[in-house]
Design a protein around this nucleic acid. Sequence first.
RNA 1: GGGGUCGUAGUUCAGUUGGUUAGAACGCCUGCCUGUCACGCAGGAGGUCGCCGGUUCGAGUCCGGUCGGUCCCGCCA
Length: 594
Amino acid sequence: MGELKRSHSCNDLGVDHIDQEVTLMGWVLRRRDHGGVIFIDLRDRWGMTQVVFNPEFNTEVHAKAHVLRSEWVIAVRGKVIRRPEGMVNNNLHTGEIELLVTELRILNSSITPPFPLDEDIEVSDSLRLQYRYLDLRRPGMADNLIMRHKACQALRAFLNDENFLEIETPVLTRSTPEGARDYLVPSRVNPGKFYALPQSPQLFKQLLMVAGMDRYYQIVKCFRDEDLRADRQPEFTQVDMELSFITEEDIYRIAEGVMKSLFAATRGLELKTPFPRMTYAEAMERYGSDKPDTRFGLELISLTDVVRGCGFQVFRTVVEKGGLVQGINAKGCAHLSRKDLDDLTAYVANYGAKGLAWVKVKEDGEWQSPIAKFFTDQERAGMAATLAAQPGDLLFFVADTATIVRTSLAELRLELARRLGLIDKNTFNFLWVTDFPLLEYDHDQKRHTAVHHPFTAPTEEDMAMLESDPGKVRSRAYDLVLNGTEIGGGSLRIHQKEVQNRVFKALSIAPEEAADKFAFLLKALELGAPPHGGIAFGLDRLMMIIAGRDTIRDVIAFPKTQKATCPLTDAPAGVARKQLTELHLRPDWQEEKK
RNA sequence: GGGGUCGUAGUUCAGUUGGUUAGAACGCCUGCCUGUCACGCAGGAGGUCGCCGGUUCGAGUCCGGUCGGUCCCGCCA
């Protein structure tokens, strides 16, 4: 860079700087070479400034500028001048001025980029990830990272004000039963033993409460070796926190404060608090989901009692076998085509629904429907009344087990809303979902498993049922849902050894196994563990929603592909045999022949 | 583990019923151009149609497999 020193960013200069001598550094976004005058759009993290090489003003530097190409890195010194009459670019923050160059220094050239860096051009994901450092130069991607930084700073400021301590926890820890598949790390020093990467710092943050830290938080990487989705990858970031001597109300207040500060810092939005709340039971009843999107209606309506003993055999048998019949009234949607209905039927089939019954309510109130003939006038009237059906409405029904009915109608509801354009992207609907069940029965494992995790406290009033009717016990867990996405969850924890042992027993974790895997926790609970609880937010998902993106890859600097690889570094990769033997691993695969 | 979808020039895509030499735009290269801002004009280069196999006189096109991207189901306390 020689004696040149950057004086401003590419977004700084305006009419106040006219006639000043400045130096800019950055990347050549575009050149417009008129043979005579040459314009370069110079870009950096902050913005863009037009720089001008004028042969009448400086022949030497103009001649030198002819070689400049996209993504060359340059330093330019010159004078800030007002653009001529009528040449102002109102789309550009620095559009009132330009830099008339007196000195050009080429800091680095660039080969032709593998894809254009223009914002509006779609490039395949594999190419973007292979050249992620170019992809991140695009303003939209850079903005996402900048926004993520602001979000982290805002929540740190808020939590610091609330007397939290930011404390790090180990990344090399031990594998514990329950939950997702662990990433394992073999120990060289301890042959045959393994560390696991944390699925969350759950037990460590509880131990920090036992340690009297009182309020802890951490922005922390977590690891789960499961298959990927648009909003899920194996390493992800949690905003993790834990507090002592609190109730649910304290957690809600803190979490709402975090969201408030975060949305103010990123979107400049003033969120209304407190957020609405809904029990798990109500959410399942009205939306068929424990993370309902409340930006639109299309609620599920139960018809199980209305169609009991009706003339339609499919519905009748399902009810007799203890299943459910539920419906959705798509108001004013009777105009949907047969193809639309076939598509929707295929859509719910993905979620196990064997069929999707539909009824178009005609202007005279008559039913146009393949199943109309199976019902008496009275039965039809009862169903119509329950669904508040009016002429022009389209009614959907699914009859099956409770799980299939709820899942398929919940997904149908979302798909309908998308197709009908009922979703407002600029609305942010938060919802606390409370009173989750503590346990659910796993038919494969033939035992109960924890809905949240094994350290979640049961409610006082249900505790007595732990042994007699474990499936009925409610927990002191809560989820925070934003626009139908679970963005966080937590619970009040068990802080007494006896209760923890009873829950382990309800989970069919044998006392010997509990002692082996969780001895340290049980011991800590005997040594003055305070009542405590906490919550963790999925930062990637939160940023995805705030940035208005469809995948968390767009808010992660170096994300993984759906096959959990990194096209940039080509991870995961093979290792030398010696590395394995040092770790006391004996591979049975053949080494690649050279 | 399963299902959908995509893969053609550097990039984004088109390519008819299987039929001559595979096209467009942008980008790139050369030349011209003194007020553009997606500058303009003229010319040019650039292709193992992801890969392997099959059907066929003939395959970018049809079939099977495989690899890669992506979305979903299962999975994700």
